[in-house]
């Protein structure tokens, strides 16, 4: 389990980073909690790793204008401990302890998790439920994409060549619920849901369910249960089991919304 050889660069400015990530075979490295294992297992072999953890200004958490902006390089641990997040985004605060284990949360980043777009991960689902806006930078400037449009498929996002996810704005939400089922704490969920109520509308985002977070906006619990698509099976759970478990989670979360 030794990674194939690769070049490594650690830019100090975004401008340097943009130049580097356009090189052939370049890949962005942030906390490395997903990328490094895939290298060691030789599942990917990038020629150049562009370590963006030296970039300034991407590790802030700031509440303003009814939203909390979180820099892409904030570690899960920083988000978990943030008073702003606890006050304005109880959904995120509730979700953070479910992300893997403390050692991983100390290094893994918010931007890394969103950009990887693992369909079983907590943060993409939270972003979709909260209707977060993802902030993407490139040489051409910044663009903003709603979470629901950012996640395109299995490990697939709206990020294009030459772009870096620099942060996300999460609109405040007071009523929320986060539940997931894992056989061991810290594992990827068999199925989970992140849900908020905004202007009396329930936004429920299911994860571990399809190739990306599944957003439903049901009027009733029965409608919610009836509107679920057929989930993908995993190693241990059939589609029918996951659908059943998703319905159980809907029942458990419903009255908190």
């Amino acid at each position: 389990m030794k990674a194939p050889s690769f070049a490594y660069a650690k830019p100090r400015t975004l401008a340097e980073a943009f130049e580097l990530i356009e090189r052939p075979g370049a890949k962005i490295l942030a906390g490395g909690q997903s990328l490094i294992p895939t290298l060691n297992m030789r599942l990917s072999a990038p020629e150049l790793l562009v370590d963006i953890t030296g970039l300034a200004g991407l590790s802030n958490i700031e509440a303003k204008n009814g939203a909390v902006r979180i820099g892409a390089l904030c570690t899960h641990a920083m988000v978990e401990r943030s008073p702003e997040v606890r006050e304005h985004l109880p959904l995120l605060a509730e979700a953070m302890p479910h992300i893997a284990h403390p050692a991983i949360r100390n290094r893994g980043t918010l931007g890394g998790s969103l950009a990887l777009a693992d369909p079983a991960a907590e943060l993409p689902a939270c972003a979709v439920a909260l209707d977060a806006v993802l902030i993407i930078a490139s040489r051409k400037g910044e663009r903003r994409v709603r979470a629901v449009e950012f996640f395109k498929g299995l490990f697939e996002t709206d990020l294009k060549q030459g772009e870096i996810l620099v942060g996300a704005e999460f609109p405040k939400a007071e009523k929320s619920a986060f539940v997931e089922l894992t056989r061991r704490h810290g594992d990827y969920a068999i199925v989970g849901l992140a849900a908020v109520t905004k202007q009396r509308e329930r936004r429920i985002s299911l994860f571990g369910f399809a190739d990306r977070p599944v957003l439903i906006r049901p009027g009733s619990l029965e409608e919610a249960k009836g509107s679920l698509p057929k989930p993908a099976a995993d190693l241990y759970h059939s589609s029918a089991t996951k659908l059943h478990l998703a319905k159980v989670l809907l029942e458990r979360a419903w009255n908190r919304l």
Binding site: R183, I190, H237, T241, H244
Partner: peptide, 13 residues
């Protein structure tokens, strides 16, 4: 005894 095997025994799935 996975959750699925127990749910199957309970005839829930």
């Amino acid at each position: 005894f996975t959750p699925e095997r127990i749910l199957q025994a309970l005839k829930k799935v």
